[in-house]
Design a protein around this nucleic acid. Structure first.
Length: 413
DNA sequence: AAGACTCGCAACCGCCCTTGA
DNA sequence: GTCAAGGGCGGTTGCGAGTCT
């Protein structure tokens, strides 16, 4: 399975595309679709390799591409998803409609990474840089492991959310045929439908009944659900905290097992020296996508550098294991409606109104320029600990809420 | 004004996975 | 089961534009 010689052929043009070439490519795809990329150049009269055509199309010419400056909201989304997914740009791109993975990658490398670094946050781990000094006791290992597991979890969430959406769509179509107009009924039915709608029973029931961690079935099923969005091993990915397992065979590697469950019981116990340190993560119910209420604008970043609460943030994800417990119901709730900046904003406002001062996640940590005394002035040791737990929980809440609130038009769902 | 330097982005490279013969 | 083609993805490069000295 060697590399295809696609671009090795002599006589093929490389380098920047001319408007004429763009025109030819556009015209051809308009008329015929792209079909086989390899065959396309000759048919379209282009002296390019198919791969080059595909890239030009997917990264530039595609009509559904939004170009130009990233909004603050998009920046936040990228940061949060990167914290969770690492350098899986294509996965991140599925949550940013109209942005290409290449564009996001470039933006991260040229803007966001630098900003985080400037703020003393390691863009790879999303933790304060000096954290490495503190973690000689093995906590960094736990952090890495946790991050690793979070990635598996995210892939699993994607799969389950996608399935939930599909179930819902099926149900809606079913109901359409049966002239039912009650959407809440539709929703309840969708939740209950499970076993008859193609949703795996383990999902519908609620996932505290774990599939065997290394269960081949669970892996195959998940792979099928995710539409091959399962994380893949890339040689370079380890550096991004993204040493995801890769093919199913690799799953049992460094990470014990990405469970197909919603509870990281076994691995997390391994991580937790003190079981009391287990923090239950409750998925998106009443989700408040904190940090989504800021207005767009560069100046938002300015106060940030001075106001970020490094001590709390530092204690964030790395030191403790987090038990992710969610329910199919909660997940389905979080998937209601399309994912839009407005909806995020709305849910954020709602969340805040629902007393959720505590529901501030990573982005809020980054963006809050005021009202942050409560945590840093906390004083007492016990307060410190509870703050620490809260931050830990909120951090993942924020990120996973975002992941759960996937765009309806996302190809991933 | 001009050369040096920096930045941002489009495009390329190369690895890997999937698919189908 | 094997192999090659096709395509996806993340990392890297090269060049033009902007900024600095």
């Amino acid at each position: 399975m060697g590399r295809s010689p696609c671009c090795d052929k002599v006589g093929l043009k490389k380098g920047p595309w001319t408007p004429e070439e763009d025109q030819k490519l556009l015209a051809y795809i308009d008329e015929h679709g792209h079909g086989s990329w390899r065959a396309l150049p000759s048919k379209a009269g282009l002296q390019r390799c198919g791969k080059s055509c595909r890239l030009r199309w997917t990264n530039y010419l595609r009509p559904d591409i939004k170009r130009g400056k990233f909004s603050l909201q998009e920046e936040q989304t990228i940061i949060q998803l990167h914290a969770l997914l690492g350098n899986r740009w294509s996965a991140i791109a599925t949550h940013l409609p109209k942005r290409t993975d290449n564009e996001i990658k470039n933006y991260w490398n040229t803007h966001l990474k630098k900003r985080l670094a400037k703020m003393g946050i390691d863009p790879v781990t999303h933790k304060p840089k000096n954290d490495a000094l503190v973690s000689s006791d093995g906590q960094s290992k736990s952090a890495a492991k946790l991050s690793h597991m979070a990635q598996w979890e995210s892939a699993r969430l994607e799969a389950e959310a996608r399935l939930a959406r599909e179930s819902k769509l099926r149900l809606q179509s079913f109901q359409h045929h049966h002239s039912s107009s009650n959407s809440s009924q539709a929703y309840s039915a969708a939740s209950a439908l499970g076993s008859t709608s193609g949703a795996p029973p383990s999902l519908v029931k609620k996932a505290t009944a774990p599939l065997p961690p290394s269960s081949p079935q669970s892996l195959d099923v998940l792979k099928a659900w995710t539409g091959s969005s399962w994380p893949s091993t890339k040689s370079g990915e380890g550096s991004g905290g993204t040493g995801t397992g890769g093919s199913a065979n690799g799953i049992a590697g460094d990470l014990e097992s990405p469970t197909s469950t919603l509870t990281f019981s076994e691995p997390m116990n391994v991580l937790c020296e003190n079981p009391k340190q287990m923090i239950e993560f409750v998925g998106a119910s009443g989700s408040s996508n904190s940090g989504m209420i800021k207005e767009e604008g560069e100046q938002e970043w300015k106060g940030l550098e001075s106001s970020i609460r490094l001590p709390e943030f530092k204690e964030g994800i790395g030191n403790n294991a987090v038990s992710f417990t969610s329910t199919f119901h909660e997940m389905t709730m979080s998937l209601e409606g399309p994912w839009t900046p407005e909806s995020l904003r709305a849910s954020s406002v709602q969340g805040n109104m629902e007393n959720n001062d505590m529901e501030e996640g990573f982005t809020s940590l980054l963006l809050n320029s005021s009202g942050d005394q409560s945590l840093s002035d906390g004083g007492g040791e016990s307060d410190k600990h509870s703050d620490y737990y809260e931050d830990n929980k909120n951090y993942w809440n924020s990120i996973l809420n975002l992941v759960n609130s996937s765009p309806s038009e996302s190809p991933m769902f």
